[in-house]
Amino acid sequence: MNTLLEVSGVSVSFDGFKAINNLSIQIGEPELRAVIGPNGAGKTTFMDILTGKTKPDEGRVIWGEKSVSLLGMNESQIAQAGIGRKFQKPTVFEAQTVRENIVMALKNPRRPFDLLFKRGSDDAEARVRAISDEIGLSDALDHMSGALSHGQKQWLEIGMLLAQDPRLLLVDEPAAGMSPSEREHTTDLLVRAAKTRAVVVVEHDMEFVRRLNCKVTVLHQGAVLAEGSLDHVTKNQDVVDVYLGR
């Protein structure tokens, strides 16, 4: 497994509060990683730094084989470099069909309007089919996105990110508000996606993290407190004290 992302000695303060404190993390490709920690641990700020929303006060964030610094890029350049982010609340175009949402998200579609009006673009149609199969919405391609369940909207948004073919997918609390069967499907979807790219899941739900069956990074006060399997980190007394014991 190659190192795709290297965060080294990163710190950032807001009004004197150190949200991230000398944070160092490496993410491989492909890899599935869960990031957990109590509220205020720095999980969201970590993702904000990776996507260019927040610039750190110090440290390095190095990306890809050419060891490019993400800190010199803006948000759109980082997205084009291959980092996709899914926020906790699904944001899909509710007045459009599932198909139209995926088409709009496709990376470099030749002529998306041709596809919408069934003119040519067979390769794009095949890509839409493949993505809808992967997220489990093939039967809903012509349904309005606003009529989907909460879980289905989450899957559609993940599909829209996959349509952009990111090398790193950042997913924020994907299991929130889902039924047990939806959570199971979401687990399968993220595990499959991580076979060909890096997927980082920020999550509070320990049972969901356990089902992901991946390496876990525990953040506390903006730094890495522990790292390893879920069983390994949950036996760490520091983790028990600051997180699980609350």
Rank of each mutant, 00 (worst) to 15 (best):
G82P: 03
G222A: 01
L23P: 02
V200G: 01
A19F: 08
A194E: 13
A105H: 11
P109E: 11
G40P: 00
R167A: 09
L106C: 05
G228K: 14
V233L: 13
M160P: 02
D139M: 00
L141Q: 11
V218W: 03
D139R: 06
M47N: 12
L168R: 01
S76M: 04
Q164D: 00
D241T: 13
E173A: 09
G16D: 12
K118P: 00
L4A: 09
S229G: 15
I135P: 02
G245F: 07
D241E: 10
E157L: 13
S13E: 05
A226F: 04
L116D: 11
M206F: 06
L141N: 11
G159A: 03
R110F: 14
D142S: 08
K107F: 12
G64D: 00
D241M: 05
I36G: 02
D205M: 05
G64C: 08
G177Q: 08
P56N: 07
R127C: 00
R85T: 14
A193K: 15
M160D: 02
N2R: 10
K86H: 01
D48W: 05
L162Y: 05
E207A: 14
V171R: 04
N39P: 01
A126Y: 08
D123I: 08
D15F: 06
I102Q: 04
D205V: 12
V191K: 15
T217Y: 08
R210N: 15
R60Q: 09
S179H: 05
E29F: 13
E184S: 08
V240H: 10
A194W: 12
S132A: 15
D165M: 08
Q164F: 09
D123C: 07
G146S: 01
A140N: 10
N2P: 11
P90M: 10
S179I: 05
L50R: 03
G9W: 01
N2V: 07
I20W: 03
A34E: 07
A223I: 02
L169C: 10
G28T: 00
G59Q: 14
I25V: 13
R129W: 09
L161N: 01
S76C: 06
Y243Q: 02
A163V: 06
E203F: 12
I83S: 00
N74Q: 13
V61E: 02
N101A: 11
F14K: 06
E125S: 09
G146E: 09
D165P: 03
Q26L: 09
I135Y: 09
H204Y: 12
A124Y: 04
V202E: 03
G245V: 00
H220T: 00
F46A: 05
R183G: 15
V103Q: 03
L212P: 03
W155K: 05
Q96L: 15
T196S: 15
A198I: 11
S121C: 13
V98T: 06
W63R: 04
E94S: 06
